[in-house]
Design a protein around this nucleic acid. Sequence first.
RNA 1: GCGCCUUUAGCUCAGCUGGUAGAGCAACGGACUCUUAAUCCGCAGGUCCUGGGUUCGAUCCCCAGAGGGCGCACCA
Length: 516
Amino acid sequence: MASPFSRWANYRRESVSDESVELGTNGLEQEKARRLGSLDALRAQGTNPYPYRFDRSHTLGEIRNEFGALEAGSETDTHVTVAGRILLKRDQGKLIFATLQDRETSIQLFVSKAIVGDDTFDAINNLDLGDWVGATGIVMTTRKGELSIKVDSVVLLSKAVRPLPDKWHGLTDTDTRYRQRYADLIGNEESRRMFAVRHAVIASFRRTLHERGFIEVETPVLHVEPGGAHARPFVTHHNALDMTLYLRIALELHLKRLIVGGMERVFEIGRVFRNEGISTRHNPEFTMMELYQAFADYTDIMDLTEVLFVNAANDATGSSTVLIDDLPVDLAKPWRRVRMIDLVKEATGVEVHPSQPREQLVALAEKHGVKVLPHFGPGKIIEELFEATCEAALREPTFVTGHPVEISPLARVDRNDPYLTERFELFVGGRELANAYSELNDPVEQRLRFEDEQKSKEAGNAEAGSVDEDFLRAMEYGMPPTGGLGIGMDRLVMLIGNAQSIRDVILFPTLRLEAF
RNA sequence: GCGCCUUUAGCUCAGCUGGUAGAGCAACGGACUCUUAAUCCGCAGGUCCUGGGUUCGAUCCCCAGAGGGCGCACCA
C-alpha cells in the first residue's frame, strides 16, 4: 500500500500490542498497558481516540456565569456542548458524576443510565481520569444545588495513557512539579493562579507603557559584546560566520541605540541570560523589562516605576496591597527615596563617601566583615558595605539612590556631587527589583568609563565590561537626555503573587539533567 | 563550591533498638439513581535513589555517589 498512513497504522498496531505483552512490571506500566489496551478496544469498535477537532458552545466559565444562580433541583432547556478533562468520577451504579475541568473552572457531568442508554453509559464508565472529552447535554442543578450538565452524549477527544497525580494533593514534590509542569498545572490550582498573575503583570506593563506612548521593540539576543550589566555571560558560536557570540545579559545598550535613532520612548520585555548561581531568587534565564524615555531623568523614572507597580498589582490581584514577609504593604503609598551613602551611615554610624581615602573604607569594611578584593575602589567598597549592612532590612519599597560612579559605568554623574550618579535601585523585601539611571549620554565621558571597566577587568574583575565601540559610535551621533529603567519581571511576579521561589513563577525553570 | 535536611507503590505519606515493608488515593473485580476527595466489600501493585561496607541478617547503621529542598557563598 502506498498510503503514507499505513506505516503509522502498522506502528500503532504493533507497538500497542507488543507493549501490552511486555509491560506490567510495575504499577505505572500496568496502568499504561491497561489504558493502551482500551485504546485498542476503542479503535476496534471504530472510535478514533484522537479526533482532529471539536466545537463547543460554551466554556465552563460561561456556563457558571450564566447559570451560577440556578436554584437546587432545577433543569433548564439550554442545551450546551462543552469540552474538558475528566478529573474525578463518582460512580453510583446507574448514575455517574464526573468532574470536568477546562482552563477556567470545572463543572459536574451528570450521567444517567436511563437517559443515555446502556452502551453510552458503559462508554462513559470506561473513561479514565485524565481523558479529554466533549460532552453535550442540558444545564441543570442537582438536588443539592451542584451546577451540572445532564449528559446525553460524550465524545472522547484524547485518551490519556498515563495516570493523573493524586486527585486531592496534586503534586507536592517540588522536583516533579518543576520537571513535569504539565502535571503540576493539571492538579494544582495555586500553580495555575501564579501563572495567571504572571500573565496579568506583563499585560499590565504593556498597557501602561502603550498608554504613555512607549513603543515595544525586539533587540538581538545574540551579542558580539555582552554589556549593560555586570555578569558572566553564556558563550556560544556561530558556525557560518565563525564567530564567538554571547547570550545577552541585559537589554540596555541596544535600546539606547534606538533612543539615539530618535524613537524617544521604547521598551522591551525579554529573556536575559546570566551564567551564575541558581537560588530562590536567581534563574540562569530570566525576564527583564527595560524602558528608555527621552527628555526624562531618574526622578521621572521613579514616578513611572511606582505607577507600573501599582497598576500591575491592581490588574493582577485587584488590589495595590501585596504581602511582604507575610505583612501587607500598600504599594500605592509613595516610596522612600534615600541615598546609598546615607543608608550606610544609618547602619554603621560612620559617614562614608567615595571621595574618602580607600584605607578608611577598607577599615570600616573589615569591621563589618566585608571582604575587600584588590580591584575594589572606594565606590565598590561602599556598595559592599551597603549590601552587608542595609540591603536585607529594606522590606518596604525603597529607592536607593546615588550609587558611586565607579560601579555605575552607564549612569550620569549626579548634578550636585561628582562622585555619585543619578541612579536608583529599587529594593522590596530585601530583594533588588529594579535599576535605573539618568543615562550617560556624553560620548567622551562614556569612553573613559568603559576604559575604566576595561582596566578593572584586566585587574581581575571577571564581571567588568569592556569598550563597546559600536555603542560609542551611536553615542557620538547624540543621545538626548534620557531616563532608563530595568525591572526583573520574575521577582516582580513573586512579589505580586506572593511566591517564595523564582521557580514558582517560571513555567520551566532551569534544572539539572534528568536521568530517564 | 560548603553546610544542614531529604529520596519508600503511579500520586500523597507511615514504617519502633537492625529481623526482607504498610495506609489513603488512583487501578482492577463487585454493590449502589443525587454524589461532591462519594461510600462499602474484595484484589493487585515495591530496584525502600544507586554502589560499596559492617552484620547471621540492612529501608534502617557507616562510607561514597546521584536527584531534590533550604541556607551560605556567588550574583548590581
